[in-house]
């Protein structure tokens, strides 16, 4: 599993790290039960703040992709669903693009409804 973050990018570092883990699950690089690097170690080798990594891991826990347990570190959940994650990723891109175009929520929902065959 390769983590790469760009300190010059506009996207916050925590979001970049979370996106790497999501990508890893999507590609199958990170299988259920796989352990993520310890937050302290990842922060050290990427030369970022420990709280940045902890924020990324907390985000992934809230998305029900990883489990955080004291002493056991961060582990990919057994029910981390790569297929659903793919949809979530697409939705994220769709919402991001729609926001850039200045669409309101109701307009976005209308587009999703129209997309149905």
């Amino acid at each position: 599993m390769l983590f790469r973050v760009d300190v010059a990018a506009a996207e916050p570092l925590a979001d970049q790290i979370a996106a790497q883990v999501r990508g890893g699950i999507l590609r199958g690089d990170l299988a259920p039960g796989e352990r993520l690097p310890a937050a302290r170690e990842l922060a050290d080798v990427l030369d970022v703040n420990l709280h940045t990594v902890l924020r990324a891991y907390a985000k992934l826990r809230d998305e029900e992709l990883i489990e955080l347990r004291r002493g056991r570190g961060a582990v990919i959940r057994a029910d981390a669903d790569a297929a659903r994650l793919r949809l979530v990723e697409l939705a994220r891109q769709f919402v991001g693009e729609a926001r850039r175009q200045g669409l309101a929520d109701a307009e976005m929902l209308a587009i999703v409804r129209e997309a149905q065959p």
Partner: peptide
């Protein structure tokens, strides 16, 4: 790797 990029790899 861009100059502003940082990367790390690990596996079990």
């Amino acid at each position: 790797l861009a100059p502003t990029e940082r990367a790390a790899w690990s596996t079990t």
